[in-house]
Amino acid sequence: MVLLKALTLIFSADREVIFIAMTSLSLAVASTIVSMIPALLLGTLLSIKKFRGKSIIIVFLNSLMALPTVVIGLMIYSIISRSGPLGGLRLLFTPWGIIIGQSILSFPIIASLIYSALSDIRPELPETLNSFGVTGIRKLYMIFRESRTAVLSAILSGFGRIIGEVGVSMMLGGNIRWYTRTITTTIALETSRGEFELALAMGLILIFISLSVNTLLHLGVKSHG
């Protein structure tokens, strides 16, 4: 029954459902891209360089992964609220606010997964590259290339945490119809309205999206490898 409803929702191409799904997807993609680059750099830096305070950063990153989404939402709220320091930018209750929160959410996950992947799988790789005289951007590129599966799954874990989260989207986006309403905030809303079937159907759509993104990326990497 629920499955039927979900399928009807998807195939009836209801404008609002499509809009909501697209909002969720594009916010998650944008946030993943925003957090990906600094996270990749930090993760790699941690795995190939030795410096003071490194273990503190690693412990800190791992702890940040446990931070509830609403707490991140609250912290960003107090900064971008009009009564907060960045209030003048008017980021609250806009997609931008959500992107900030979600990027912060996925950053520690991607960074710390990259770190552990790189240091566990190929501890000798940086040395090897050094001995061949490969440095700088080229070296970074080689490292990522050699461990692309791990890099990809780190990014996908970050993406997964974001697309399924509700705290940040609700607090910073405000669940505004035709603007910042995402799949997860719709689920929360429909649940509170007692429309359980609709909520479950939206949940299935979320799984469908997540499945498609993961399959697509894995196929991309597989066929290449």
């Binding site: 997807l25 993609v29 931008w96 692309r148 697509l216 066929s223």
Partner: peptide
């Protein structure tokens, strides 16, 4: 590598497009 680049390209286009709509 081509495929990854292509996927990345699609990702970025989607993101830029949506951000543009939002803006």
């Amino acid at each position: 590598m081509k495929k990854i680049k292509f996927l990345l390209f699609i990702f970025i286009i989607t993101a830029v497009y949506t951000l543009n709509c939002f803006a």
